[in-house]
């Protein structure tokens, strides 16, 4: 019997697919943190506004560019729109490190898939890969994504939550500024908008986040994904927070401050007592 190793139960297969994860240390860390007054290290999380809309044959994503670290702005002009494939981009909110790794991993997976199959990756493929990964990590990978793309089946827009749930929507927003952005989208979205109107709409939605949400700020990045061109990132599409008056700091000419008195005090006395030896 030993030679033929088959799963005894067909559901064993399922278990093996799920992989083995132990969250014991997560539980332990949470316990230690609650029992002793130790603050666990924190990571950079971007309080964010991101949004996306799907039009007739184009998907437009947009994001603000503020990255925060607690109450402090860590980067005033960061990029929250991530390349996944030529025809698939995503906007991310949540833990910056997780987002960067996840999107980079997805980018390489999709490139390998493209080379293996010789076809453009589909949006649903990316969504499935992401959601299974996020589900596997049970919310410990803090990625909230707005994912958009155009493939052979047309334009698609998805939102993906850190626990791995997904929704397919015509328009959506995420991040701390999502409420402000959603207000704009709910009021003005219409599937018949032109690309230009679409760009203006997402920019306006992000602007609402920038101005009304403390976690969001700085500029608006926009990404337009079309069937023919693929995705194009319009970096700093709008700059509503440019510094209008930059202080011109001309150097003062020498002598502006008059010298009233000069006194040099020797603080160290040097004794020159050198003994020569043969």
């Amino acid at each position: 019997m030993a030679a033929v190793e088959e799963p005894q139960d067909y559901l064993d297969v399922l278990q093996s697919h799920r992989g083995g994860f132990s969250f014991e240390n997560c539980k332990r860390n949470a316990y230690l943190a609650s029992q002793v007054a130790i603050k666990p290290p924190t990571a950079m999380k971007s309080g964010t506004t991101i949004c996306g809309i799907q039009l007739k044959d184009v998907v437009i994503l947009a994001a603000d560019t503020r990255s925060t670290c607690g109450p402090m702005v860590a980067d005033k002009n960061c990029e929250k729109l991530h390349f996944i494939a030529k025809n698939v981009y995503c906007a991310g909110a949540g833990t910056a490190a997780d987002l960067q790794h996840t999107t980079e991993m997805m980018e390489s997976q999709m490139e390998l898939l493209r080379m293996a199959t010789g076809t453009q990756p589909r949006v649903c493929t990316v969504v499935r890969r992401l959601s299974s990964m996020l589900f596997k990590y049970q919310g410990y990978v803090g990625c909230a994504l707005v994912l958009g793309g155009v493939d052979v089946t047309g334009p698609h827009l998805f939102q993906i939550y850190p626990h791995g749930s997904t929704d397919k929507l015509p328009f959506t927003s995420m991040g701390s500024g999502s409420l402000a952005a959603m207000a704009i989208l709910e009021a003005e979205y219409n599937e018949n908008l032109s690309v230009e109107e679409g760009k203006k709409l997402v920019a306006k939605a992000i602007r609402a986040g920038i101005f009304n949400d403390l976690g969001s700020g700085s500029n608006v990045d926009v990404c337009v994904i079309t069937k023919d061109v693929g995705g194009t990132i319009l970096r700093n599409f709008e700059k509503p927070n440019e510094r209008k008056f930059r202080a011109k700091h001309a150097a003062f000419p020498i002598g502006t401050t008059p010298i009233m008195k000069q006194e040099i005090t020797k603080l160290v006395s040097v004794e020159e007592d050198v003994v020569m030896r043969d």
Partner: peptide
């Protein structure tokens, strides 16, 4: 286990809790 899911997150603002050691709020 269930307790730790919600406690750390501020109400209505799921992505602002600056603590990676805890999972995000569930949908």
């Amino acid at each position: 286990v269930g307790q730790e899911f919600v406690r750390h997150v501020e109400d209505g603002c799921p992505y602002r809790a600056d603590d990676v050691m805890k999972p995000e709020q569930a949908v």
